[in-house]
Design a protein around this nucleic acid. Structure first.
Lengths: 347, 347
DNA sequence: CCTGTAAGAGAAAACCTTTTCCCAACTCGG
DNA sequence: CCGAGTTGGGAAAAGGTTTTCTCTTACAGG
């Protein structure tokens, strides 16, 4: 009564369970049980302790809890994507999924440095993370660190080290199908494919799907044009496609949005209309690019936020002791229709 | 001797100091002192314990250490920039600075949600972070959470809540000076400024510097054109600037790289050469955009990685007990010269 | 030989919480 | 009135490490 007109003191040491117990006139054991709905005591005692804890602004020390429970409610997120186009939505999804479950995320940027990677992994293990999510900027390269036999579960997102790991990746072939089938439905007959370098696994997966869909629709297959992931390559590819004596494409399926942007700009410079003369579809649905092209770019979205969320939830269930089958989970892409292909397929 | 031909068992429980002590035939106290270079013992004992620890793969449990030391070697990074253009380099710098000092980073994306923000802050405090870095996507808006009277030091990066906090921001006015002075040195006489919306503080800071430099050089000041941060606005602004009956600019200083990109594209469409007829400078040095423009864009770089590093190091010194004066530290920008302004100023 | 000191190492407290076990008191049926 | 069961609550251990204090032994000096 004498001192409770003061709000919580501002710069004080953290108030511990012991403080609460002393203030409420009980033992720490009883205080703990009161706050955790454990044990037996009169409703009145329980409420009095709770009220005391509230008044003192008591918050349990997670460190002590973690030490005891051997569970820290913390996971490590390993990434080597300083660039961020892919890892940011991924991280956002992961973070969402985990935070909703009271789990915090250690961010570890390991670049391409194995030493740094090992440093981070060791630090995370020392801090007793409950699990690790590894994510990379490329599906077919993995992080410069061995996560093989850790004491904690590991999930891979957007990267896939070996077949018996648990990995979430986007269904690139499916995404490519979406795009090419969309173009077919719109009546395009000569669909070209301009994409990135052969050193990327996704280039082949998407190109194969592209060829498959064309074959299924009885359309001519022109081998995909492989280059770099840049606007400049988009420009250049248009020269290849439209300068030759052969029949000109009426649609271009691009390996990413930057290539698509280059393609669209080059087409405009040649006086070709998009989507009038040529329909264009991009990949990645990088909104900042897709929305800045004129016309705004229809693009395949890899649903990275959802992918991250799935990865996060799966890690959580693994941490919780649920078993999970090893292997790769491919998550479907979706087509975001804007204006670079003509009228939306509304039937 | 009997069992040390086995390497560290792979899936075992973590080995504790007690295990090491038992194996080496000493007490945990002695083992601890041996490993931490504390206390007195024969060099031989110390080395024997160390060797045992190595052999067993002992790693101290950070949770226990943190609990005891009241220092977790962990800091929280609060951001509301899901977009990432600014926060990624920032985070990278922060992370670098901290990791080099053995400090891990909790990543907390609070979006614009005060409830989420409070949740994260509470969780970080419960986990006994040593400090917090708050970073936002806008200098003049701060996070939806009150970090006023925490038990741990707080540093702001790229955002600035109130004058008596410690904040690191880029020197936008200085950056604008760099750009406009560069154009002046190149002999440009009619320099326009196309920038973002008036609701951004940086717009005014940069515009003022722009006017100052023009005045200092005896050049005519045409009020800056305020719009959005988009390519589309860059296009539109060119129409404003070049359609009128008044004298046409021979240089445009743009508020960001996307605007600059729009400006350059629009200029080309009108048959105006860059940098021949018009020099263009951007802001942010967003490499993916700056390098894709034709010609590659000269742009002001805010040195966000360095800014992040400074913020991280300052937080560390604060955590270490060093005092730091409150207030705003403006870090200089730098001009990255590419080809959109003509010959580099080499003298 | 005795005392003082230093070396070497261990016991125990501390950090904070949770949980198991236990004890005292009370109630109730017989 | 007695034994059994229940109720309310506390003591203590556990989790892993660090640090202070204490203790034993050895050795040097007198």
């Amino acid at each position: 009564m004498a001192s409770d007109d003061q709000p919580v003191p501002v710069f004080s040491k953290p108030v511990t369970l012991r403080d609460v117990a002393a203030e409420a006139g009980v033992s720490v054991a009883t205080a703990s049980k009161a706050l955790n709905d454990q044990g037996r005591m009169t409703a009145e005692t329980r409420e009095r302790i709770r009220e005391t804890a509230r008044r003192l602004g008591f918050r349990p020390n997670s460190l002590a809890q973690s030490l005891l429970r051997r569970r820290s409610f913390t996971v490590g997120l390993l990434t080597n994507d300083t660039y961020g186009r892919f890892s940011l939505p991924l991280m956002s999804g992961i973070s969402d999924a985990l935070v909703d479950n009271g789990v915090s995320v250690f961010l570890c940027n390991v670049e391409e440095d194995p030493r740094l990677g090992q440093l981070h992994v060791d630090a995370m293990l020392d801090k007793r993370v409950d699990g690790i999510i590894a994510t990379g900027k490329r599906i077919d390269r993995h992080l410069p660190v061995d996560l093989g036999n850790l004491r904690v579960p590991v999930i891979y997102a957007f990267t896939q080290p070996d077949p018996d790991a648990i990995a979430f990746v986007s269904d690139d072939a499916g995404g490519a199908r979406l795009a090419v089938e969309h173009l077919c439905r719109l009546g395009r007959k000569r669909i070209a494919h301009v994409t990135g370098p052969a050193s990327f696994a996704v280039v082949h997966a998407r190109a194969q799907a592209y060829r498959d869909v064309l074959a299924e629709n009885g359309l001519p297959v022109t081998g995909p044009l492989l280059g770099s992931w840049s606007e400049a390559w988009g420009h250049e590819a248009v020269a290849h496609l439209f300068d030759g004596r052969r029949e000109r494409p009426d649609a271009v399926f691009c390996g990413n949005d930057q290539i698509a942007r280059g393609v669209i700009d080059a087409l405009r410079e040649r006086g070709l209309g998009v989507p009038g003369d040529v329909a264009v579809i991009g990949f990645d649905n990088w909104e900042i690019v897709a929305e800045a092209t004129r016309p705004p770019l229809t693009s395949v979205d890899m649903n990275l936020v959802a992918l991250g969320r799935e990865a996060g939830l799966t890690l959580l269930s693994l941490v919780g002791g649920q078993p999970a089958a090893p292997g790769i989970r491919k998550l479907p892409c979706r087509l975001v229709v804007r204006q670079s292909c003509g009228h939306p397929p509304d039937g």
